[in-house]
């Protein structure tokens, strides 16, 4: 695990200090924020997940474990696995597409850097819905892409693209690519020019220089990018609804329907959400744990 090693080496290079009064004061906003706006709402949902369903939504404060019993159901397991597959595929495509772009931006001259960064972000300052509907115009059977392909004789009849899993991945990649590019750019930008050139000059060939020197050195950015794409992609279902035709549910739909759909089953929605958070919290905790153990040994 290269990623782990570099992070550890990096962390070890700074001696951590014991915080003084000023440091505690500077840390206070973060801790208070997390306690009040992250921990407190999560606790509310935790309590709700053990309650019974209220008739108009909301909950009746009567203890039950039924919601968690319902979470462990083959259907939801299948849906979670599918959501993970989509998010994983999206992350992989974003990494392959985004790394070279991030590298290019990070290595370009200062005057180009900001312009390129803005160019990456500006498309996303339009509405998600309108952007996604624009993709429909491109992908539909009588759409832009199909008519171009037919016109140039690449295909004889329209190729079904919209409402397919491929369209969903495309939409997800489109939505999350900037979140891969930005953190990797941040790592690339601090690469030492001399080092990069030395790697190439050693005659290792660009591929080797890349995999042996540059990738390990930018691994914190890669890790961050993977995190920032994979985790939100797991919960986003709107792309699946619009470009995939909503034929399969994602874990995000299932949870949202408990609050915004006919069932009005808040406690079950809360239980699903808590289970999801717990699973990822544990995974996150242990990946970090492992790094820390390696570090001290």
């Amino acid at each position: 695990m290269r990623t782990g090693q570099t992070t550890i080496a990096a962390a070890a290079s700074v001696r951590q200090r014991t915080p003084g009064v000023t440091a505690w004061l500077l840390m206070a906003p973060l801790f208070l924020w997390v306690l009040l706006f992250v921990v407190a709402p999560t606790l509310i949902m935790l309590v709700y997940s053990f309650c019974e369903r209220g008739t108009l939504g909301g909950v009746v404060f009567k203890f039950t474990l039924a919601n968690y019993a319902a979470v462990f159901d083959a259907t939801y397991l299948r849906i979670v696995i599918r959501s993970i597959l989509f998010a994983g595929l999206t992350t992989a495509v974003c990494l392959v597409m985004g790394y070279p772009v991030a590298y290019h931006i990070g290595r370009s001259s200062e005057k180009w850097r900001n312009i390129l960064l803005m160019l990456v972000m500006i498309p996303f300052w339009t509405s998600f819905l309108i952007r996604t509907y624009a993709w429909m115009t491109i992908l539909k059977s009588e759409g832009l892409l199909n008519s171009l392909l037919v016109q140039y004789g690449l295909i004889t009849q329209p190729f079904e693209m919209l409402y397919t899993p491929g369209a969903v991945v495309l939409g997800l990649v489109y939505t999350f690519l900037p979140f891969m590019i930005l953190p990797i750019y941040t790592s690339v930008e601090k690469l030492d020019n001399a080092l990069v050139e030395a790697a190439f000059d050693l005659g290792a060939g660009p591929m080797r220089a890349f995999s042996k020197v540059i990738v390990p050195m930018t691994s914190p950015g890669i890790t961050a990018g993977i995190l920032l794409v994979f985790v939100p992609a797991l919960g986003l279902y709107a792309v699946n609804d619009i470009l995939g035709g909503g034929k399969v549910d994602m874990i995000g739909n299932i949870i949202e329907n408990q609050f915004k759909g006919n069932a009005r089953n808040w406690p079950f929605g809360a239980a699903l959400g808590i289970a999801l958070m717990a699973a990822f919290g544990i995974a996150f905790w242990f990946t970090g744990r492992r790094q820390a153990t390696v570090q001290t040994s």
């Binding site: 509907y133 429909m136 539909k140 059977s141 009588e142 759409g143 919209l162 409402y163 609804d241 619009i242 035709g245 909503g246 034929k247």
Partner: peptide, 18 residues
């Protein structure tokens, strides 16, 4: 048999000819 589930704007798929 269903191709599209859409409560918000089912007209889109019909108009597009999909």
């Amino acid at each position: 048999l269903v191709k599209v589930y859409d409560s918000d704007s089912p007209k889109t798929a019909l108009l597009n000819g999909d």
